[in-house]
């Protein structure tokens, strides 16, 4: 499928993760950091409650891109986390094509909370 600059690849809302899901994600990534599962630890670290894993947002970006363009066409993904995500917070995730050069397509991705707070920004490249 040919892509053009400005094409919206997807715009979806990912339902917020509860604590059980955070624990599953930590187990699945072998992440021992208690900040994702231990309320008291998270508060001692200066947060109101446990944090959703940044790599969960990365995984959302990658899974949605793979669904849209095909996993075998993904070349790279570069994510910057810009704000913490807490349990049960839905994320609006979107991706827009920013450049098409020959067989290489670049897109910009964002994840944002319902109040508009952007929690992650990313760029990704895939084969046309």
């Amino acid at each position: 499928m040919a892509h053009r600059e400005g094409d919206r690849l997807f715009e979806v809302t990912v339902p917020g993760a509860d604590r059980a899901r955070l624990a599953d994600f930590s187990a699945g990534t072998e992440d021992p950091n208690p900040i994702h599962t231990d309320e008291e630890f998270a508060k001692a670290a200066g947060f109101p409650t446990v944090l959703q894993q940044g790599p969960m947002t990365t995984a959302h970006f990658a899974r949605l891109l793979a669904e849209r363009v095909g996993q075998d066409r993904l070349r790279w993904l570069d994510v910057t986390f810009t704000a913490p995500v807490f349990p049960e917070e839905d994320l609006r995730i979107e991706a827009v094509v920013t450049a098409v050069e020959g067989d290489a397509v670049t897109c910009a991705l964002t994840a944002a909370k319902a109040d508009g707070t952007v929690t992650a920004k990313a760029e990704a490249g895939f084969g046309a």
Binding site: A45, G54, T80
Partner: peptide, 11 residues
């Protein structure tokens, strides 16, 4: 870990 943040990832 109490002072750690994850800034980002690249694949």
């Amino acid at each position: 870990r109490k002072r750690a943040l994850h800034g980002g990832q690249r694949y």
